[in-house]
Simulated assay, not measured.
Amino acid sequence: MYHSIVARISRRNFERVNAHDYEPLLASCTPDIHHRFGGDHALGGERHDKEHLRAWFQRLGRLNPTLRLTVSDVWVKGLPHDTTIVMRWDAVQDMPDASPYVNHGVHVIKMRWLKVVSIDANEDSQAVERACAVFAAHGVAEATAAPITS
């Protein structure tokens, strides 16, 4: 029962990202959340607190306004004091030059007592970097900004 509740919460949080509804997701995180997103681009790097993660989500929404994540699998392991969630997903979005954007990846999420303590996002970081370059070429200056890190 616990695992199915956690899986449902996790899927709902991905839907919140699709809807740019970040505050409920952030409310489920500890103040010292650790977030890692691979790559050397505007979305890459590591954050170690909720405020920097909030800034990162806001940037994600500005750089990827039509991003659509579709979760295909969720695995939950552990007990409430130490839970690991693995989520496999696919992503698409509209690009300003009409080129296709597709990505896929896996998130490894750690929870303690239903609070997210870490998010490790593993995706095709080169696809993200190429998308940032397309947005930059179409006048989105933030697409070449330094990563938000803490």
Rank of each mutant, 00 (worst) to 15 (best):
Y2C: 03
H3A: 11
V6Y: 01
I9L: 13
R11L: 00
R11Y: 04
N13A: 13
E15P: 01
E15Q: 15
R16D: 14
N18Y: 10
Y22F: 15
L25H: 10
L25T: 13
S28C: 06
S28I: 02
D32E: 14
I33P: 02
H34N: 09
R36Q: 13
G39W: 06
D40I: 10
E46H: 07
E46I: 04
H48A: 05
E51T: 10
H52A: 12
H52E: 10
H52W: 11
F57H: 11
Q58C: 05
R59E: 02
G61V: 04
R68I: 10
T70D: 08
T70P: 01
W75G: 15
K77N: 14
L79K: 12
P80L: 02
H81R: 15
H81M: 15
V86Q: 13
V86R: 12
R88S: 13
V92I: 15
V92T: 15
V92F: 11
S99Q: 14
P100C: 09
G105D: 01
G105A: 08
V106C: 11
V108S: 06
V108R: 09
K110H: 08
W113N: 05
V117T: 13
V117Y: 04
V128P: 02
R130F: 11
A131L: 05
V134D: 03
V134K: 05
F135S: 06
A136L: 10
A141P: 03
A141L: 11
E142H: 01
A146T: 06
S150P: 01
